[in-house]
């Protein structure tokens, strides 16, 4: 399998786009014509070769460019990556999980050679060749969590488990849907979810936490979340909201297909072996509406979902002011025909 890594940007001139193959494998998040919060978790099992669910950590054509974007975000704001002192061991657990999975599942791209604690990591797409001593921080250029997540697509929250709760005590967060690691670090599951409308009252967080506390090593789980983003911005952080918020004004019926993106997060949950921490990778996939409607089922369905989405959700997700325009544009792709169940294209 070869991946043609695209040279593209997620800022300034926004040259990001998806190849036809990437469109086909996009994780469309709606299995029916409407959407409401639910405890939507399932085992993170390998499934549908070629899909984003096949591998433990999906690597796609945007990998190299996404890692360049992350490096830029971190250069501007080092607070996007933080780890409280007791989380270093969890960082090593995470490094091991990622290196072992990637070397096994993408042998053409990554190699890991282990001789006791002497490790040798080769990351071909990024041109990295690193020898280091496992569990010895001084032998890596960054802490273990930062080192490996600078080489892995998606944000990462690393949760300490104690007092029957999860605590966001470490993370690498540069591609987030408008929340701040620097503000949320140290919070528990209910505290960092505090701003979410409806879901607390629906009992979703109580049930979700119960599930997460019981995730066992070797039995990871996953779920999808989504929002809408104007321009292919990976970094829609609150820190930079005063820079990207204004872009929402630029949306017109003419540029909708190019500028408006469905943003889907593939969220996974892994128990880590030494620290008993839980790691929560949040992988962001972007697709232009113009790309999305090339699958007629998705165009029809997205139109219905966005049209009927409760107002509180559209407000929380930040697209309430643009919703009428988006729905009008999408309506051209909805002929009223029934859609087949499930997320896959027909």
């Amino acid at each position: 399998m070869t991946i043609n890594f695209r040279d593209e940007t997620f800022r300034d001139d926004f040259t990001f786009r998806n190849s036809p193959e990437a469109i086909k494998r996009f994780p469309f998040p709606f299995h029916e014509d409407s959407y409401m919060y639910s405890v939507n978790m399932e085992p993170h099992k390998s499934y549908r070769p070629g899909s984003v669910y096949e591998r433990t950590f999906d690597v796609d054509e945007h990998y190299v460019s996404e890692m360049k974007d992350r490096a830029k975000v971190l250069a501007e704001d080092p607070l996007r990556c933080q780890s409280l002192p007791h989380m270093t061991l969890a960082g090593w657990d995470l490094l091991e999980l990622i290196m072992v999975s990637k070397a096994e599942e993408y042998p053409d791209l990554f190699e890991l050679h282990r001789d006791g604690n002497k490790w040798h990591w080769i990351n071909k797409p990024l041109g990295i060749d690193q020898k280091f001593v496992f569990l010895d921080e001084a032998t890596l250029p960054y802490g273990p969590m930062e080192y490996i997540t600078r080489q892995t697509q998606g944000d990462f929250a690393v949760l300490d488990q104690r007092d029957d709760n999860l605590w966001m005590d470490a993370g690498m967060v540069t591609t987030q849907a408008d929340w701040s690691l620097d503000f949320d670090i140290g919070m528990n599951f209910f505290e960092w979810h505090a701003p979410v409308p409806k879901a607390h009252e629906m009992g979703i967080f109580v049930r979700a936490l119960k599930f997460l506390l019981n995730v066992r090593q070797g039995a990871p789980a996953r779920r999808l979340n989504w929002t809408m983003t104007v321009n292919p911005l990976l970094d829609t952080s609150p820190e930079n909201y005063h820079k990207w918020g204004v872009m929402k004004q630029d949306l017109t019926m003419e540029n909708m297909g190019e500028k408006m993106h469905l943003r889907v997060e593939l969220q996974t949950f892994f128990r880590l072996p030494r620290s008993n921490a839980l790691v929560f990778p949040i992988r962001c996939y972007l697709i232009k509406l113009g790309e999305l409607v090339t699958e007629p089922k998705w165009g029809r369905r997205l139109h219905r979902v966005l049209r009927d989405l409760p107002e509180e959700l559209a407000t929380y997700k930040g697209f309430i002011s643009n919703r009428p325009k988006i729905v009008e544009w999408l309506s051209k792709y909805d002929d009223g025909k029934p859609t087949s169940p499930g997320i896959w294209p027909d």
Binding site: F183, I185, G186, M187, E191, P238, G245, V246, K248, S321
Partner: peptide, 15 residues
């Protein structure tokens, strides 16, 4: 945030 002992302020005229 307890760690910062503060509420969060966000630019009101960002959009």
């Amino acid at each position: 945030s307890r760690r910062i002992a503060a509420f969060q302020g966000v630019r009101v005229d960002a959009e």
